[in-house]
């Protein structure tokens, strides 16, 4: 690793030994992240398929179970997450123009908003635990549709849990990036780690944009 005999215009660019020039390396990283996101789409796609199958089989149970979710907290979290996407976009911009303070500041703001999201999610999970809505032997649900409501909550926990796991990974990445940004590693020439983490962060955000109505809002009018 590391630049050996950097060609002109690549000073400060940590060029991998197997790349010909910075453009190739940057394009590869970005393209790699897109390919990875394609995998992610299919990963969540499996869960969305299961959701679609059971929601069409048990529409009433799903609507009823959905009413046990906290729409207020869900809405706040949606706003928090969209806000974090904004700060992430600002961080990418700051990286592209090479402003170090901006990078660190926006990355930390994104990290903070992401943490708020997870904290609220934790509060919601705690409520569900308290209300015995966690699938398994301890699951309690009034009414004849209990088994089907359990499937709803199983999917709820799988989907939001997987999403939360992606958030946790994202927060880890943000932390590392912020530290490296503070050391001045990212310049107008070399900033693809911030850019591709941005792609990842927006993807996780978009997943939530789908999860929120499918899980929280279906019971409102039914």
């Amino acid at each position: 690793m590391g630049a050996h005999g950097a060609p002109p215009g690549t000073q400060g660019f940590p060029l991998g030994h197997h790349f010909d020039d910075p453009a190739q390396q940057t394009e590869s990283s970005t393209f790699g992240m897109w390919v990875f996101l394609a995998t992610e789409v299919l990963f969540f796609g499996g869960l969305f398929t299961a959701y679609a199958v059971y929601r069409s089989a048990y529409p009433h149970a799903f609507a009823e179970a959905s009413r046990h979710l906290d729409v207020t907290l869900g809405t706040i979290n949606t706003a928090v997450l969209i806000g974090s996407s904004l700060t992430m976009a600002m961080a990418v911009h700051a990286a592209q123009v090479g402003r170090r303070a901006g990078q660190v500041g926006y990355l930390l703001m994104t990290l903070a908003l992401g943490s708020v999201f997870l904290a609220i999610k934790g509060v919601e999970y705690a409520h569900k635990h308290h209300e015995h809505l966690i699938p398994g032997p301890g699951f309690r649900f009034e009414g004849p549709e209990a088994p089907h409501a359990q499937i709803f909550f199983a999917l709820y926990f799988m989907m939001t849990g997987m999403h939360a796991l992606h958030m946790v990974i994202g927060l880890g990445l943000l932390g590392v990036l912020a530290a490296r940004a503070r050391m001045g590693r990212f310049t107008a020439v070399y900033n693809s780690p911030i850019e591709i983490t941005g792609l990842y962060w927006h993807f996780v955000d978009i997943v939530w944009i789908f999860l929120f109505p499918l899980l929280y809002l279906i019971g409102l009018h039914a």
């Binding site: 299961a50 199958v53 059971y54 089989a57 048990y58 699938p135 398994g136 032997p137 088994p147 089907h148 359990q150 499937i151 909550f153 199983a154 999917l155 799988m158």
Partner: peptide, 17 residues
């Protein structure tokens, strides 16, 4: 998850398919 928690996703007795 089905094996660990009996969430019913694949268990017909719990409405799963």
């Amino acid at each position: 998850a089905e094996r660990l928690f009996h969430i019913g996703i694949f268990d017909p007795r719990l409405g799963g398919d």
